[in-house]
Design a protein around this nucleic acid. Structure first.
Lengths: 332, 332
DNA sequence: TTGTAGGCGTTATCAC
DNA sequence: GTGATAACGCCTACAA
């Protein structure tokens, strides 16, 4: 690989001049500029980013921490982050953490040594004091870390309430909830949103809440148990689509007719919800948008560190499919 | 961030000594070593990888090119690559190319400027002459590029034949194929494997081959048309699970009883095939294994460039689920 | 056993 | 307008 020196030699100028041409700053004679550009082209010269990084103290790289890219929620988020990072000239580093704090710390250190410019965190395991003194911009995505860390999230609680209200409006009288992990903020908020709608109902019992921990398998078991013990249930709100699909399957296997006997609604709005039969009604998150926005905010902080940025919260949107009834047109 | 100089000052030694301690090479007095280690700990010093990279000409980063991480085949591959890269001390860069050659070239250049140490390519759009003169190790994964580029793949043709043979063995008399894109090597080979088994059958017609291009939507349409025009079909081999799921759905919507009236088999062995009902029988690829192996080979080439490595091909395995019949125990 | 100094490829400051 | 040169942080001859 040719270096700036090779270019300088070929163009018969100093490296300083080549640098000026490259970066388009400082005066440089039209004539010499041309000679330099010729030389660059001739040698197919590309500046070495590592040397640049060393000098500037910036790497033009950002990282995204996710629990596990194999969970179908995250690819879309990762894609949004990569596209946007790319658009602003940043390279994208993906880090799977498995919700393992040790892995998170190991990654954090490795990235800091590489002078990463910024980090986006989807985490419920990181400790605030583990990132508070880091002088690299950090944004929380999807899950809040604490109020000091800027976050981009959706309004989980309100979205969950909407989901449950929709079940009610379409005729459900006994609505259960398959909840996510107890230590994940988004799951907690969705549970709260569910409770907001059902807690004061005379039929409500906490036995209608089961934990599926955002996984296919546990949600399947939870649903089986729930419906066996409570065949009167006619609506289930699953805290994410992955579990919603499991609910669908468990219910069908138990002989439930969906949506006539049992309505099911999920949360996330993943493609997954389109390939099942019946397809899954869901509260769709603007996944790509929040990923994109997180990068934009992060880069603002990176390139203009004194600028104050604020947390943002997005709305989810009902996406009616086949696992629920249509809403009655007339008010009841 | 403290530098090696700060450590040297605190420990009252030269930077060379600190470096020796860090890298454990050259002689250093037990006593001074301790002083240095103290200082390192006290300052919480971590060497700057950018400076190291500049000196060594190596970045300890590898990249993976995939068409689109949102296609559920790739997260597992990406996960395997990341885990393995990590294990050997390399950082993982994910690049989505959308099968767009311009994006590939743009990424290639960006990575080269960052002195990336190696690249793993899942691509059917890259041109051989675009990578032939690059002096960075490159491995093709999942799809071959050409015989000069070392590759890690599965035996697609044989796997496809196995799939079709299984349909035959379980009683299917008219077997169709929903094929992948014509310009993707894995899809071509699976089509060949299908043809190997059916071409000489008296019932065979090329009208039994439809193109779903590895996508949910196109496969759905292709299946609808196929089954409407050819209700005699009693077995479908889909070139990947994504399409297999679509076949399932389209067939069910047309009123086909699966597997009694129509058997369906997919290819890939993704989790997706477990969440449908009926679940999808599939030829399971060792996805994680090939991803892992690609990294191992790549790193061998990086760290020992004169070592000759060879392409590897893995076998796929039949995974019987509910969308096909069990094989008869007695030979027919 | 330890220190000095040059170099990795850039950029920016300061002369000329 | 242009060219030396120091500096970014680290590593490794080479000296001592």
């Amino acid at each position: 690989m040719p270096t700036i020196k090779d270019v300088a030699k070929l163009a018969e100028v100093s490296v300083a001049t080549v640098s000026r041409v490259m970066n388009n700053n400082g005066y440089v004679n039209q004539n010499t500029r041309q000679r330099v550009e010729e030389a660059i082209k001739q040698l197919n010269y590309r500046p070495n980013d590592v040397a640049r990084s060393l000098f500037k103290g910036k790497s033009k790289m950002i990282a995204l921490f996710v629990p596990d890219i194999m969970n179908p929620f995250f690819p879309q988020l990762a894609r949004a982050v990569e596209d946007t990072a790319n658009k602003y000239g940043y390279l994208f580093v993906l880090c799977n953490t498995d919700n393992d704090n040790e892995k998170e710390i190991a990654y954090l250190n490795a990235l800091l040594q590489k002078t990463i410019d910024g980090i986006i965190l989807v985490s419920n395991t990181i400790q605030v004091d583990q990132i508070n003194d880091i002088n690299v911009p950090i944004i929380a995505l999807d899950r809040k870390i604490n109020s000091n860390i800027i976050s981009v999230t959706v309004n989980n609680r309100e979205g969950a309430s909407q989901a449950v209200r929709y079940l009610k409006e379409t005729g459900c009288k006994r609505i259960a909830h398959i909840a996510g992990p107890k230590d994940v903020s988004s799951a907690k908020q969705r549970l709260e949103g569910y409770l907001d709608e059902v807690q004061s109902e005379e039929w409500f019992t906490t036995d209608y809440i089961r934990y599926g921990n955002y996984t296919v398998k546990e949600a399947y078991q939870a649903t089986e148990e729930l419906l066996s013990q409570h065949p009167e249930i006619d609506g289930i709100f699953a805290a994410n689509d992955l579990m919603g699909v499991s609910v669908l399957k468990a219910a069908k296997n138990l002989g439930f007719d969906i949506p006539n006997q049992l309505s099911v609604i999920g949360y996330d709005g993943m493609e997954l919800s389109d390939i099942t039969s019946p397809t899954l009604t869901t509260m769709a998150q603007p996944i790509y948008d929040i990923g994109k926005r997180a990068v934009e905010i992060l880069i603002e902080k990176i390139e203009n560190s004194d600028k104050e940025v604020e947390s943002e919260q997005y709305q989810v949107q009902l996406s009616v499919k086949e696992s629920t009834h249509e809403r009655r047109e007339v008010d009841e």
